[in-house]
Write a protein that binds this DNA or RNA. Structure first.
Lengths: 164, 164
DNA sequence: TATTGTTATACTCTATAACTATA
DNA sequence: TATAGTTATAGAGTATAACAATA
């Protein structure tokens, strides 16, 4: 384990101010007490591998979450996707158009609201996502290999208590 | 920062899910099993409040982590900062120049390596960071209010097992 | 009048190549 | 030759304002 000091780590011992000493090992004890810092570092670490493994599917993290949500919620609207995934409507337009032009999703008129459009995964899109979700799940297990299954489940639950 | 209204999907009437293509409530059960998704959502949730509370200090998350690391590691070099915080050297240059022009840090010659430059927080920078770190710590406690102190400590340790 | 989807656009963040000066 | 710092720049990600069609 890391050297966990007390609550508020103090500045390391400083030598002569005119000739600053070389730092042998960088102390990040304080930053490691911040949830935002740790969550972001952990997320970026996983996303780095995600980008590599999901590149063959032509899916980046946002594309993946959008496709997965459409797959599991046939007929979902763009507005609902934005609210669910915390995206802004203008940034979703090009993404949807790209997925449609690739033949992964279809846009069908909404049954009750003429303004809205229901989004549906095509058979091609569904087949792609079955593979993509398996790849993503495998990668995540690999990236969290230092955690026991119970620790992993605990971590997911605690993170959701922050943003949900 | 998102500016979406936190309004739930309409249709309070309880209809059968099989009544039509319209989605009543969006199911995100699968995405919630992914550590990358949850970690990113939690991080963004905290960072949103971070941006608001730290704006009076003129510090964004990266500025804050750089200043904090300099504060706790007097004489640290740019290269060490990049390795520690996972930044790219070209993206750190402007950031360091900005902090220096604001009088928050000083650049002193490295004692043993003529190529390197040691970074030091000025008294003004130190005073600012004492306040900024307190604000950040307070904000994080507030944002993780649903967690017990033990759960919070557990969460930090588990996240570090992923990226460290 | 309010909402869905859209266009245009600006701003920020991140990534890559190449240069300089020192080692 | 290798490394620290820098410059310039391209690409991706994220933000706001405003519009047309529909409720």
């Amino acid at each position: 384990m890391q050297n966990l000091k007390g609550k508020a780590p103090r500045t390391a011992s400083s030598k002569k101010p005119s000739a600053g000493p070389a730092v042998d090992k960088v102390d990040t004890a304080y930053l490691q007490t911040l949830m935002g810092y740790n969550a972001r570092r952990a997320a970026l670490s996983i996303i780095e591998l995600f980008l590599e493994r999901l590149a063959p599917y032509g899916l980046k993290p946002v594309d993946f979450s959008v496709m997965s949500t459409i797959q599991h919620n046939p007929g979902v609207t763009s507005r609902q996707l934005c609210a669910t995934l915390n995206l802004l409507p203008p940034n979703l337009v090009g993404l949807i158009q790209s997925l449609e032009s690739r033949g992964l999703i279809e846009r069908k008129p909404h049954p009750h609201d003429g303004r809205a459009v229901g989004l549906h995964a095509t058979p091609k899109g569904q087949a792609l996502m079955v593979q993509a979700e398996q790849t993503a799940s495998d990668l995540e297990i690999e990236k969290t290999a230092k955690l026991t299954p119970i620790q992993r489940k605990t971590l997911l639950a605690l993170l959701q208590k922050i943003y949900l």
